[in-house]
Amino acid sequence: MRKNKLFLTLFVSLLMLSSAAWSDDAEDNYKNYCWQCHGMTGDGMGLNVQDMSVQPRDHTSAKAMGGRSDADLFKVIKEGGLAIDKSVLMPPWRDSLSDDEIHGLVKYLRKLCQCG
């Protein structure tokens, strides 16, 4: 009976693992979602900038990033540029990232700018 319970628990755990998307670490998320515009080094000179009407923020600049609170950064990642009266080009990532992953990205940004 105990064996059966153990198998059932293992089976349910595996099922949950296979059906739920993983929570990715901040560096992987930064590469997957942010690099395309903010650049490989985070300097705002990403692959897509050539024809953009508004240049992406330089995440390595303490001056550009220092004025933003962690709450602002969380909000702009989750809800997009328009949520803080900035560009529509910055999309909302709430359907791609969990709140925990967004908090992870905010910490990652603070490391890049060495500010805050």
């Binding site: 490989m40 990403g46 692959l47």
Partner: peptide
């Protein structure tokens, strides 16, 4: 233009990341 996963096909350039 930058392949299936751009992060695997770009490198920093003078003005922006390049393919």
């Amino acid at each position: 233009p930058a392949g299936h996963h751009p992060i695997q096909h770009i490198q920093p350039g003078k003005k922006r990341d390049m393919v």
